[in-house]
Simulated assay, not measured.
Amino acid sequence: MSKSLNVLVTGMGALIGQGVALGLRNDKRTSIIGLDRSYSAYGSSLCEEFVCKPKVDDRSPEYLEFWLELLQQKRIDLILPAISIDLDFVDAHRMTFEAAGVRLGINSAALISVACDKMNFYKALESLDVPRIPSAQPKSWSDALEMMGPAPLLLKPRRGEGSQGHALLIDEADFLYWTQKANNENWMLQPIIGTDHEEYTVGCFGLDNGEFLDEMIIMRRRLTRSGNTGLAEVVDHPLILETSRKLMRYFKPVGPTNLQFRVAAGKAYLLEINPRFSSSCSLRTSFGFNEAEMCVDYFLRGKRPAEPQIKFGAAQRYSADFIVYESNYI
């Protein structure tokens, strides 16, 4: 069968984009066009073609023009934005890209909007019967302790991904330093819930209108220093499964959706929801939950993806060398 579908995968210099491409490597229907700000030798090896973004501001007319020309020249059938900055851009120009005849492998506009700000997302959970982690912007360290209990407390950006920008606050000096350093009040505080040994990442696939694939993949994980999943074990966890289904019915996501939890005192606390691919998508593919192929079926073929056959096991990520001889691309 010849490859007849051209899929644009963004973030090909990053772990997420490379994971999405790996999920399509054995899909005989698709050719992968990779996109990133800078050239990646390894990312390029996963694509039929690699394209670099122009060095212009993402908000400029020239940047949108670049995208439209790229879609036409490469005859793109489906866009899969792997990283948040590209998801936001594609979401902002939905009508323009759809008018160009391109399918978009992105979540609902409503969920993208509410999930991009962690404080607003915390408020959106008020009407849903699930445990919430107290979240606030206290005016002083004494207010923080009164609202959230004893230190340490966690400061995180309201808008951000992974563990970037997180800081552990031990005393008032930490509070003053990190809150003043935060950009435009882009911060919130939370108490530390549970331990590193009880953190979970869940892969789900939404079908709109509160429907979703019955099979989800739940991994207990340990994070690397950069905030990505470094160790993962596929597990059964009825409490997390029940809570995930409740969240999926409530938020009605479309396509790849990642839920992250901490478990403490017999409760599953939602850390955040990523309405897109996450950095552990390649691990999920290895255990039978291939979100990239699901996207081709759902967004491009218009059919319900087959229920995944989940395998159980564990995975550890490690750094490796990718060699390109006689190259001067750096």
Rank of each mutant, 00 (worst) to 15 (best):
K3N: 12
L5M: 13
G11F: 07
G13L: 07
I16S: 12
A21P: 03
A21M: 08
S31K: 14
I33C: 07
L35V: 05
D36C: 04
D36G: 06
R37D: 08
R37W: 08
S38L: 11
Y39E: 10
A41E: 12
C47K: 00
C52G: 05
K55A: 12
R59Q: 09
E62R: 03
E65C: 06
E69T: 12
E69G: 14
L80M: 13
L87H: 10
A100P: 02
S108T: 15
A109F: 04
A110Y: 04
L111M: 15
D117Y: 01
M119E: 14
Y122T: 08
A124W: 08
E126D: 11
E126S: 13
D129M: 11
V130E: 08
W141A: 06
A144R: 10
L145D: 03
M147D: 15
L153C: 06
L155I: 05
L155H: 05
G165W: 03
L169G: 02
L169K: 01
A173H: 09
D174V: 00
L176T: 10
L176E: 13
Y177G: 04
K181E: 14
N186K: 02
L189D: 09
I193Y: 11
H197F: 11
Y200C: 02
G206R: 01
G210W: 08
M219I: 00
T224L: 11
G227I: 01
G230F: 12
E233A: 00
I240A: 03
S244L: 08
L247E: 07
Y250F: 15
Y250W: 14
Q260K: 12
R262D: 03
P275F: 03
F277Y: 15
S278Q: 05
S280F: 14
C281P: 01
T285R: 15
C295K: 00
R304C: 13
R304A: 08
K311Q: 12
A314C: 08
Q316D: 04
R317P: 00
Y318P: 00
S319C: 07
F322Y: 15
Y325D: 10
